[in-house]
């Protein structure tokens, strides 16, 4: 009904036909020297994200586009590129969204700074509240509490709780 499909759908759709071609391409890639193994390719691909499908690591993405990118990584590896060079190439070509974490620059620092700051603030608030709550107890509640605790405090507590329920 619609000729136009969203990118993600389309890329998925392309696999069927493409399988045949890629199998052959894999072989040509294998013929190169030195040959990067699938594992070496996947190790780098795992750290990159498919630029057209959302939040899918490149090593598990089944689309034709991703297959091309994995082949690209293989090619770059065989040309002696380092892991960082390949990652940088992908960032330059397809934008920072291809890496799993925003690079630590500019506004992106917020990702790393804000949560610890909020958590710390929460911890301080909680600690202060706890101290405020525990203070009056030492003066006001002490005389009232029973001083002579039973020897086996635990068993007594348990028994008491169970009795309540009978």
């Amino acid at each position: 009904m619609k000729n136009y499909l969203r990118i993600t759908h389309y890329a998925l759709l392309a696999i069927g036909l493409a399988l045949l071609f890629t199998a052959q391409r894999n072989q040509t890639a294998l013929a190169q020297n030195p040959t990067p193994t699938d594992d070496e390719v996947n190790r780098i691909a795992h750290q990159l994200y498919c630029p057209v499908c959302e939040n899918t690591p490149l090593d598990v993405c089944p689309t034709e586009a991703c297959r091309q990118w994995r082949d690209l990584i293989r090619q770059q590896l065989s040309q002696g590129w380092t892991e960082d060079q390949i990652k940088q190439y992908f960032i330059d070509q397809y934008g920072v969204r291809v890496v799993g974490e925003p690079p630590r620059t500019g506004l992106n620092w917020l990702v790393y700074i804000l949560p610890p700051a909020i958590i710390l603030a929460g911890a301080i608030l909680l600690f202060r509240a706890l101290r405020a709550w525990t203070k009056p107890s030492t003066t006001a509640a002490a005389p009232r509490s029973k001083k002579e605790a039973p020897k086996d405090e635990y068993v007594a507590r348990l028994e008491e709780e169970l009795k309540k329920r009978k």
Partner: peptide
């Protein structure tokens, strides 16, 4: 910034 970023599993 107009920049798309991914916040993924490593984070």
């Amino acid at each position: 910034t107009g920049q798309k970023v991914t916040v993924g599993p490593p984070f």
